[in-house]
């Protein structure tokens, strides 16, 4: 059998990866909770944000951690505009239609990336990429530790924003009761656009945290969209706590799956969890509605 030390290291690495997944999933679950939209374009927009980080590094020499405020703000703007121009205007009626619209957006995004950036895998070289810190017997890559900590910090800030500010309260009011929120004078369409923007801003931040240790290709979005959906379904659609717990569980699953089943077959765990949760407990761990 495997040495317990290796398993502990695997769990720790999974937790570190999970931190960034939490951030990606929080954006998805926010959009679902407020707008009741399953945002299939989530992965593709993350991919575009990763390219933005890549080009800021390559053309302007900006370190991904330095470009974080810039990319996050840019992602918010892209999300806000995308909602105003496409998603909000066209997404009405059956929920499959909204899913198909966001699928259309993701097809356009993926192929624009392929057209302009080519199909090559792109990575960033940062001087601290190889730095390691030792925790007990486990050696953890420093950038992953920083990224995980930063992701959780951003989630915390987002949580404070949602509970302490007027905008946050308006978003929660709309999520709970659309009509009531409209009646007390909240501009619901504006709140929708802001919420979608915040959801995409989470992706911008996640992209900056991913790039020091990860790579990007035009297909990256597809890989992340399944992971993000699995986390959100596992935690319960619309639940923040669920996204947090789900993110770490999926990070560990992926890490241990790779350890026990190998790189290839290890990925099967995520899809299987997704299927089993939908079949057996569609409300997820912390969700209230199906």
């Amino acid at each position: 059998m495997l040495d317990p030390q290796i398993i502990i290291a695997g769990v720790l690495n999974g937790l570190l990866a999970g931190g960034i997944y939490v951030l990606v999933a929080v954006g998805l679950t926010l959009i679902y909770g407020v707008l009741h939209i399953i945002n299939f374009a989530h992965g593709s927009l993350l991919m575009l944000a990763m390219y933005a980080v890549f080009f800021l590094w390559r053309l302007a020499g900006l370190d991904p951690y330095v470009s974080l405020p810039l990319v996050t703000a840019g992602a918010f703007a892209v999300g806000f505009v995308l909602y105003r121009l496409v998603i909000g205007r066209f997404s009405h009626g059956k929920d499959e239609n909204i899913l198909l619209i966001t699928l259309g957006v993701s097809i356009v995004a993926d192929n624009l990336a392929l057209l302009f950036f080519g199909g090559d895998t792109q990575t960033i070289d940062v001087p601290y990429a190889g730095d390691i810190i030792q925790v007990g017997a486990a050696f953890l890559p420093l950038p992953k530790v920083i990224s995980c900590g930063a992701a959780l910090l951003i989630c915390l800030v987002l949580g404070l924003f949602m509970t302490r500010t007027d905008t946050g309260k308006a978003i929660r009011a709309v999520a709970r009761e659309r009509q009531g929120a409209r009646l007390v004078g909240i501009d619901v369409e504006h709140v929708f656009a802001v919420s979608y923007g915040i959801g995409i801003a989470c992706l911008g931040a996640a992209a900056c945290l991913l790039m020091p240790t990860f790579y990007v290709t035009p297909q990256s979005g597809y890989a992340f969209v399944l992971v993000a959906f699995t986390i959100v379904v596992l935690g319960g659609m619309g639940s923040f706590l669920g996204a947090a717990v789900g993110g770490f569980l999926i990070g560990i699953t992926e890490s241990l799956g790779g350890l026990f089943l190998g790189e290839q077959l290890g990925q099967i765990g995520i899809s299987l969890i997704f299927i089993l949760i939908l079949l057996l407990k569609p409300t997820g761990l912390f969700g209230s509605r199906a």
Binding site: F90, I101, G104, I107, V108, D110, N111, L115
Partner: peptide, 18 residues
């Protein structure tokens, strides 16, 4: 290949909507 899929993705959005 990407060019035609860009057109097609945009068509999907417009067709579902309109």
């Amino acid at each position: 290949q990407p060019l035609s899929l860009i057109v097609y993705g945009a068509m999907l959005v417009l067709i579902v909507a309109r």
